[in-house]
Amino acid sequence: MTKSHIELTINGKKVEALVEPRTLLIHFLREQQNLTGAHIGCDTGHCGACTVDMDDMSVKSCMTFAVQANGASITTIEGVANADGTLSALQEGFRMMHGLQCGFCTPGMILRAHRLLQENPTPTEDEIRHGISGNLCRCTGYVNIVKSIQYAAAKINGTPFQEAAE
């Protein structure tokens, strides 16, 4: 099989590579680009652990061939921190609100939440729950993930966020 030449932007950096057409984007990112933040959880497009941002869309990178990303601009979890290296509002929100436990779904969850907040800066709880429904978490039961995203939205919008008391 002929290898394909692809050019894309990953976390703001131009990348060129030769890939077998069947190479899945997740394997290209993890194994050829050493960006191991996105994970494989289900292999069938249900869990969202492999979610990255591609041309302003949340995409399941284990359901995408690397060749399909030719010309695209991709952001992975490794590219979401603030320019000065501090945690982004979402990363901070997940930590402050205990929105993660084992951390395996977290990169996909944060990337998905990132796009959700780009499209809807003030989501309701229901909109958040539907917005992250392509991402499974086995640890948290989602309550604190919802809060984490609300925390980040408040921080980005400069509005107050009150943590609900236990």
């Binding site: 969202g48 979610t51 995409v59 399941k60 359901m63 539907h130 992250i132 392509g134």
Partner: peptide
Amino acid sequence: IADPQIRYK
């Protein structure tokens, strides 16, 4: 249909 990620593509 499906979920948000899948609806983008």
